[in-house]
Design a protein around this nucleic acid. Structure first.
Lengths: 137, 137
DNA sequence: ATAAAGTCTATAAAAATGATAGGCTTTATA
DNA sequence: TATAAAGCCTATCATTTTTATAGACTTTAT
């Protein structure tokens, strides 16, 4: 399951996507619309900004806006950013690799092999679904 | 990522699958082989038993054994049992459904729609990969 | 100058996960 | 039939992760 962080991020991105005609959108408005903590959302939007997905304007009249096309924001990117690895095991993670303690030899481990396949197929799904898909339904 | 519970379960199932010629296998031996806590493993194997995946024999000379064919033990079953939902959001879970608080209307929610698709495609993967796939590599 | 809005860091609270403990029941066998 | 081996069951504790809050700081329009 996705963490609330990621879920909130998706709601925020959706909201921003629906308000692309406006220059900027207030954190406050997004938080209110979905009944979530504004302070918590602040951190999330900041991360999205640092990842190059959002832009922002400080000061009075400021706010956030999408900096990328919705079609260029795949679920995989959002999930990795806020939740971490998409792979089911650290030993098959492309971006967050770590060996598994209980596995004596990765090379001969059947679990490892199968999980690599699962990872690749899962990735195909999450890279192909984008914010655009969410917006157009 | 999978919890350690699920990871350990997969290792235990693999071990049991590799020792199908023996009548029973000791929890102790599985725990030792992978360097994991025996007591923790006990609980996990019990769950697998209650789910009809493993059988056991009590008392001296007892132990655990596979009660199903490896090809009939899909990853989806093991994951659901020990980790819970496969869906990324509660509002699209087949087995653990719950509405999402921050979503005003599920019917018009684009996130919901996309996540249903992700769930279905993910499920296809996890239902098709079985213990047999792990054993045969 | 002031108020509005994002930025940043730290900390606290809550929940989930991982691990341990100990007694109970069952069963083979000496 | 006593004993030791092995799984069964429940409770509790410890750790880690997640979620949420707080408050001071910076930037900017008016």
């Amino acid at each position: 399951m996705l963490s609330k962080k990621t879920k909130y991020a998706l709601h925020a991105l959706t909201y921003l996507g629906k308000h692309r005609d406006e220059k900027t959108v207030l954190i406050h408005d997004i938080a209110e619309e979905h009944g979530i903590s504004q302070k918590f959302l602040e951190n999330i939007l900041l991360e999205l900004k640092k990842a190059g997905i959002l832009g922002s304007k400080k000061g009075k009249g400021g706010g956030y806006y999408l900096i990328k096309e919705p079609k260029d924001i795949p679920l995989s990117k959002v999930i990795r950013l806020l939740d971490g690895p998409i792979a089911l095991l650290p030993c098959v993670s492309l971006n967050y690799y770590e060996p598994c303690a209980e596995c004596k030899d990765e090379v001969t481990c059947g679990i490892n092999k199968v999980m690599i396949q699962v990872r690749d197929e899962t990735l195909k799904i999450l890279e192909n679904k984008t914010l655009e898909d969410i917006l157009k339904t």
